[in-house]
């Protein structure tokens, strides 16, 4: 498993309940991920503020806030989360433009294929956990460095 120590948390946001049900059912059947769904971006922002989200899937066209603004907010709150945009064909142009400013990991076109969705999510999470592990390693290296420096200090002190 890509995340040995915990269950990945996935947030799905769409104003259409049917999309949420469909994606959640699929992920629950095929994966061990924890899936949280919201049918309003505002509600989703609250979730992002409270919990660590590994991956977010957001619809593009929503009444109160579009998917790109929402993902921007997510980026600010949790920069390391993986962000995926679910878009209709006609919005593709906008999605592509947004990839850079939002730091979008991928976009998925509606109607989507579940197999594609599973693959994109899997790869996204892998990236997410690789980075996480990398950070952990960096922190370990830093800690080791710090303790090395302490030892160094002690040795120097001992010789003095």
């Amino acid at each position: 498993m890509i995340a040995p120590d915990r269950t990945p948390l996935i947030l799905v946001v769409d104003d259409e309940e049917m999309v949420l049900v469909s994606i959640k059912s699929f992920l629950m059947l095929e994966t061990e991920y924890e899936v949280v769904t919201c049918n309003s971006p505002a509600e989703a922002v609250e979730v992002v503020k409270q919990r660590t989200i590994d991956l977010v899937i957001s619809d593009y066209l929503m009444p109160e806030m579009d998917g790109i603004s929402f993902l921007m907010e997510v980026k600010m709150l949790q920069p390391h989360s993986i962000r995926i945009l679910l878009t209709g064909y006609a919005d593709k142009e906008n999605a592509i433009k947004a990839i850079n400013e939002v730091g979008l990991y991928q976009y998925i076109e509606k109607p989507w294929q579940n197999a594609d969705l599973a693959l994109v999510i899997h790869n996204g999470l892998e990236k997410r956990f690789l980075i996480e592990r990398l950070q952990k390693k960096i922190m370990e290296v830093q800690a080791a460095q710090t303790s090395l420096r302490d030892i160094q200090d002690q040795i120097i002190k001992a010789f003095m």
């Binding site: 049917m18 469909s22 994606i23 699929f26 509606k110």
Partner: peptide, 13 residues
Amino acid sequence: HTPIGTITSNSDV
């Protein structure tokens, strides 16, 4: 897009 995406996804599920 949305309803058909859902139906396709659901038949798959």
